[in-house]
């Protein structure tokens, strides 16, 4: 197991490359999910405000 992590002494380079890849791909996915939720929440709020305005008149 420790052999696997050591990668023959080249751990810094191998995991430096794989680590950045994993990090960026995970961040992209999380950011996309958060964005979709924000957009839906904002549009929903806008619609409720508009509906409320229509009922008042």
């Amino acid at each position: 197991m420790s052999d696997f992590f050591a990668q023959g002494g080249y751990a810094f380079f191998v995991w430096g490359a794989y680590g950045m890849t994993a990090l960026l791909l995970v961040i992209e996915v999380l950011q996309l999910r958060a964005r979709q939720r924000t957009i839906r929440a904002r549009l929903g709020r806008l619609m409720r405000i508009r509906d409320a305005g229509a009922n008042d008149q």
Binding site: Q7, G8, G9, Y10, V14, A17
Partner: peptide
């Protein structure tokens, strides 16, 4: 090349 060639799988 030594173990570092494994970067090929993402590069």
């Amino acid at each position: 090349q030594k173990e570092y060639y494994r970067i090929i799988f993402i590069h």
